[in-house]
Amino acid sequence: MTALDGSDADILLEVDDLTVSYHMGMRRPPFRAVRDITFKVARGETVSIVGESGSGKSTIGGAILGLRAIESGSIRLQGEDITNAGIKRRRAIARHIQAVFQDPFSSLDPKLTIGESVAEPLTIGARPRRDETLRSVTETLGRVGIGADALRRFPAEFSGGQRQRVSIARSIIRTPELIVCDEAVSALDVSVQAQVINLLADLKADSGTSYLFISHNMAVVRHISDRVIVLYKGRIMEQGPAADVCDQPAHPYTRSLIAAVPVPNVAVQEQRRTARSLAAKPSVVAGDVQDGCPFAPRCPFARPACTTSGDVRLVGVGPGRSAACLRLDEVLRTASASPVIW
């Protein structure tokens, strides 16, 4: 948890001006899923990317994992450029970056036993000895709380939470430095979600793994992150230490995202709702924004200038913290008057 603002020695992953587009067919212009994304992940750090559906958060994960072609920008792992790496390079990178995905029902091949699935990363470009593999798989499954009797069974016999544990076991079997968790706990029930979150925290404490945690759930992000990146329509709206971003959000979008989370307490939720409705003013800006702040049409602080001033850049609002908003002064003034209630 050092290097919050990036002394290079401890930087594991650097993403610079990342832009990813999707082709929408021959007659339509490509869709920019994310644009000019820059951030770093230090060793042992949990960085969360949070945003609503369609914000492009999974696209960033996909680009880092080599699942999405990068249009421009660069991704460096331990200083080495891994942008658009080919299959052979990916094989070497896989040693360092692994992933856990959202859907526990489709992330394990139904035709493979649990043991085969978890062992698979060991067999890429290598032919390990059978007993070594077996020992390693059993031990790794043990670390995620799955007994050895699961080895020969198939995914269909396991619950969502158990399958997610198996996916985690597969991702940690080669002790990667970074695990990209793409909505890894979103499909789970609350009680199981808590188990998996605790498991991820334990693994981090044991082996110093870094996480890039992609989620739409502000409460989960607030709980587990060291740093948070708030994404809206493919752009970073705000980023900084989790405690600051989640408890004293600077950007109007972050504020609205947090205000919308219903908390399990009637009195507090009532306060939050009142605060939310007081803060909610329709935006003076309408329609899609081509040139300017993408959030302007939903923003109670927006002015016509927000949509015509070109790209809104991230500006520093505190140590290791920045937000992309033209009206930060006013937003922060309002923020200090009505703090976020969790």
Binding site: L67, R90, R95, Q98, A99, D109
Partner: peptide, 9 residues
């Protein structure tokens, strides 16, 4: 799981 196979190289 196909994405996963690509991620593990």
């Amino acid at each position: 799981f196909i994405d996963v196979t690509r991620v593990i190289g």
